[in-house]
Design a protein around this nucleic acid. Structure first.
Length: 455
DNA sequence: CATGGCTGCCC
DNA sequence: ATTCTGC
DNA sequence: GCAGAATGGGCAGCCATG
């Protein structure tokens, strides 16, 4: 591969070399994405965007944009041949986010379905006759990874032909306990698949249906689709079940279910409009997700010391700043231990400011009070403190916070900076290793009251 | 034959 | 996954 | 609000290295 690239690059002009480099790494940075291509196709034949909607609806059924473009370019009328059909993945419906039960209920018009949000793999499952194919959220084939799901779908589903969706995760049938995502993702993809499947079987929680017995049902209202789903999922299956689902008519009910879900180790709550169709390929308010981190910005934040920073790439190159390496403090050793890279939540102004401040305190080697396996582009003196929020604390093979000997440390899942530089905090005022360990122990059992305060 | 670096994918 | 920015 | 492009932790798998 390298030698092929060498040949290409050696014979390229500088501008060609730029795109020869960008193409294989998939970072073309053209400012053009799928929706722009759909607009362009419509403009090609119609001179305006009047075919955009049609093109998009076909793209949602057939995620091969190249094929859509080819067919449409040759003959716009032949787009009608694209219909929903088993074994061609459908672009999944996505959910918006809202920070509170009140806002969700208002958006939903006073009532909605509240479902558990499971922290696993989102699966789109296609069955026809004896054949089963399973696709990931990004529409990659995952069939071989999931033998127990394939078997259950093939043998237990009360249906011959269907496309439906669910969340699959590692689950302890005996205790009813949901395992964390880190367990679920240990699923093998190629070698030892059967062994892993037997050791830690996944359970599928079905939450929507798109197609059944030759019919596209995405235009039916959600409540009708749910009934169809209930009719095909067996009651006594070890592997297949329905997502937990409640009709709610008040924000208090949403809160109560949310707290219950969190206390049982689930990721949050999904609110769904009773009447909405399945809106393929779109992030629309038919589905709204609620997670702890969307609302918890006051009670669950973490103050990190910046111990290094990264050179930005692409749109961040001009700021010479891509993010920081954050650490927590341990008063016992008077050292700073890495816990997360933080690359999200900065405005452009903040990136400029941080680069200016941090470049002034760069060091060649890490300060003697820094303990980190991760290496930033530039080390800096432990001086500045930022506030960060995250969804979860996980055990980490790469961060040194809480790491002892061969045992893992701790890290933050989905870290992002909130607010501004904490000029009121010294590095020693940052969150401590002990506090992180305490938060790790508490996180699953922590409930949130309707006022958003920890209980 | 063990392992570090890298990639692609999950969230 | 989350977040910011130009339109 | 859409579209696009930055960025996170961490897993399995591949391959070169030693």
């Amino acid at each position: 591969k390298i030698s092929l690239l060498i040949d290409l690059l050696a014979n390229a002009t500088p501008i060609e070399a730029r795109y020869i480099a960008r193409l294989p790494i998939g970072r073309l940075r053209l400012g053009v994405g799928d929706p722009t291509v759909l607009d362009a196709l419509s403009l090609m034949h119609k001179g305006d965007k009047s075919d955009r909607e049609l093109l998009e609806s076909k793209y949602n059924l057939c995620s091969d944009l190249g094929l859509i473009a080819k067919v449409y370019a040759q003959d716009p009328s032949s787009l009608s041949k694209f219909t929903m059909v088993p074994f061609t993945p459908v672009r999944p419906a996505l959910a918006e986010r809202l920070p509170s039960a009140d806002e969700i209920l208002e958006k939903m018009g006073g009532k909605c379905i509240a479902e558990a949000k499971y922290d696993g793999f989102r699966l789109q499952i296609h069955l026809k006759g004896n054949r089963v194919e399973i696709f990931s959220r990004r529409l990659e084939r995952m069939t071989e990874m999931l033998p127990e799901v394939v078997d259950a779908v093939r043998n237990e589903l009360d249906c011959d032909e269907v496309i439906f969706e669910g969340e699959a995760l590692a689950y302890n049938e005996a205790t009813g306990e949901f395992y964390p995502f880190q367990q679920t993702i240990q699923r093998k993809r190629k070698h030892g698949v059967e062994e892993k499947s037997a050791e830690m079987p996944l359970k599928l929680f079905a939450f929507d249906i798109l197609y059944i017995n030759g019919e596209d049902v995405t235009h039916k209202p959600f409540t009708q689709r749910r009934k169809l789903l209930e009719s095909i999922i067996p009651k006594d299956s070890k592997t297949l079940s329905l997502s937990e689902s409640y009709l709610v008519k008040s924000s208090q009910e949403i809160e109560a279910h949310f707290n219950d879900f969190i206390s049982r180790g689930l990721e949050g709550l999904m609110a769904k409009d009773l009447n909405a169709p399945y809106i393929a390929g779109a992030r629309k308010f038919a589905w709204v997700k609620l997670k702890r981190s969307y609302r918890n910005e006051l009670s669950d934040t973490i103050d990190l010391v910046i111990i290094g920073y990264f050179a930005g790439r692409g749109a961040r190159a001009k700021f010479k700043f891509g993010g920081v390496l954050g650490a927590v403090y341990d008063p016992h050793t008077d050292m700073f231990y890495s816990i997360a890279k933080v690359g999200s939540g900065f405005s452009e102004e903040q990136m400029s400011e941080l680069e200016k401040l941090l470049s002034a305190i760069k060091t060649k080697k890490p300060n003697a009070r820094i303990n980190s396996i991760m290496e930033p582009t530039y080390w800096v003196e432990p001086k500045y403190v930022i506030t960060v929020t995250a969804d979860e604390i996980t055990r980490s093979p790469v961060h040194t916070c809480g790491k002892t000997g061969n045992s893992p440390g701790y890290a933050l899942r989905f870290p992002r900076m909130i607010g501004d530089l904490r000029t009121d905090k010294r590095p020693e005022d940052a969150t401590t290793v002990d506090e992180i360990i305490e938060m790790y122990k508490m996180q699953k059992r922590t409930e949130v009251s309707s006022e958003g305060e920890e209980v």
